[in-house]
């Protein structure tokens, strides 16, 4: 066991660094740049039952220390993911991968998870009940504890793989949502997805994004995400994946101290595609600097200091 080892729902990770869904495609763009087997694992693009083009352009806007996206879950649909993307991925990535799942009905979540459950490459199912960029689905499941529990329960019934529920920060009480997911059988929670946001173009006097609103992510959201991970990890027994604004090894350690068992990194990869590789390489030195011998020693450290 290396000093960076951690575990997620019984599966060992060589290190706690995991590129987040929607920011790492299906891995190959990055596999051209570095050996992606250095990662703990990664979460692939949100997958739905049917192919989706996503929202009209523009889908991207800039923000101070971050970005907005309103991609709207562009993906080829679960069958094409299984038929085309997973076999291609197998040639560049040998570890179990996180399958990120989205839906517009409980039935859709259940169906997509059932099909991905049959894939040996998939180690975990990450159920995204927090996408702010689609209407009639996504985040509407993640803003109500009863709906969040219903999706979790439906998915739980069709898979033996660990179920991670990905939570929205766009709620008044993220702790109660996390608790209802735990009670409904979630094996872990991942937080946060993006914060609902918008920009207006001064020249056109219209919203920059065709979808009007989008989700804010990047360094700007780090303190919000950290606060939520801190609150949720105190309230649940299951592991918490910390996501939001991470771009350095120091940020990773801070998120682990707040109670995360591992972290996902999104927007930072879009700005610097080598960022995860560099964070993994930097971690041992930064741990030395702050006196941590192993990643496991860091997790939740701020709660009992």
């Amino acid at each position: 066991m290396g000093r960076l080892t951690t575990s997620l729902c019984g599966i060992t990770l060589d290190n706690p660094v995991i590129p987040a869904s929607g920011c790492f495609g299906y891995g190959y763009e990055y596999a051209d740049l570095f050996d992606i087997n250095c990662l703990g694992t990664f979460s692939f693009k949100g997958t739905t039952l049917h192919p989706r083009y996503g929202n009209a352009l523009p889908r991207i806007a800039e923000a101070p220390s971050g970005m907005l996206n309103a991609v709207g879950l562009q993906n080829p649909g679960v069958d094409a993911v299984i038929r085309e993307e997973l076999p291609k991925l197998r040639t560049v990535f040998t570890k179990p991968v996180i399958a990120n799942v989205s839906g517009f009905s409980i039935e859709e979540y259940r169906e997509v998870c059932a099909r991905l459950d049959a894939q040996p490459q998939v180690g975990w199912l990450e159920v995204n009940i927090s996408c702010p960029n689609v209407h009639g689905g996504g985040m509407s499941f993640g803003t109500d504890p009863a709906m969040a529990a219903a999706v979790t329960k439906a998915v739980r019934e069709v898979t033996t793989k660990p179920v991670i529920v990905k939570l929205s920060p766009n709620v008044t009480d993220i702790v109660s949502i996390a608790r209802s997911c735990e009670d409904a059988g979630a094996d872990a929670v991942a937080l946060i997805n993006t914060l609902l946001a918008m920009r207006i173009d001064l020249k056109t006097r219209r919203p920059v994004l065709a979808n009007t609103t989008g989700g804010l992510s990047g360094p700007a959201v780090f303190p919000v995400a950290l606060r939520m991970v801190w609150q949720v990890s105190q309230a649940v027994e299951i592991p918490v994946i910390g996501i939001g604004g991470i771009s350095t090894a120091e940020n990773v350690i801070e998120m682990l101290l707040a109670g995360a068992s591992c972290v996902e990194i999104g927007a930072a990869n879009l700005r610097d595609p080598w960022v995860c590789q560099h964070i993994i390489a930097d971690l041992p030195d930064v741990m030395d600097r702050y006196g941590f011998s192993t990643v496991k020693d860091i997790i939740g450290g701020a709660h009992h200091a």
């Binding site: 920011c23 083009y53 996503g54 991207i60 595609p273």
Partner: peptide, 22 residues
């Protein structure tokens, strides 16, 4: 030109419909 995120194919920030799909 379209507004882009990464510029190298990872984020689906700028997609266009073509006869071959997206």
């Amino acid at each position: 030109d379209v507004r882009m995120g990464c510029g190298f194919g990872a984020c689906m920030g700028g997609s266009k419909k073509t006869v071959h799909g997206y």
